[in-house]
């Protein structure tokens, strides 16, 4: 993977990251944020399970988040 973001940030003054790249499509960014908040803040799973899955996914996919 490139170590330099391949798209510029869509938010002036902020670096390119998932949020500022998604901002090229504001409606998608808004919908994704709502979905992500719903997943992390509500539901039947405790945070240990969520974090375990997130960390394992990040390790396998080499995700920095």
């Amino acid at each position: 993977m490139s170590t330099t973001p391949r798209l510029p940030s869509a938010v002036a003054g902020l670096p390119a990251n998932l949020g500022t790249i998604l901002a090229h499509q504001p409606a998608l960014a808004k919908g994704f944020s709502a979905l992500y908040a719903q997943f992390w803040s509500h539901g039947v799973l405790d945070h240990v399970v969520k974090e375990t899955a997130r960390i394992r996914n990040a390790r396998v996919t080499d995700c920095g988040y």
Partner: peptide
């Protein structure tokens, strides 16, 4: 059934992605 809001949000997001 336990997380109906998530299902609705996911479906809406899929539809948004297809439209975008």
């Amino acid at each position: 059934a336990l997380r109906p809001n998530l299902g609705v949000l996911a479906q809406a997001l899929c539809a948004d992605a297809a439209l975008a």
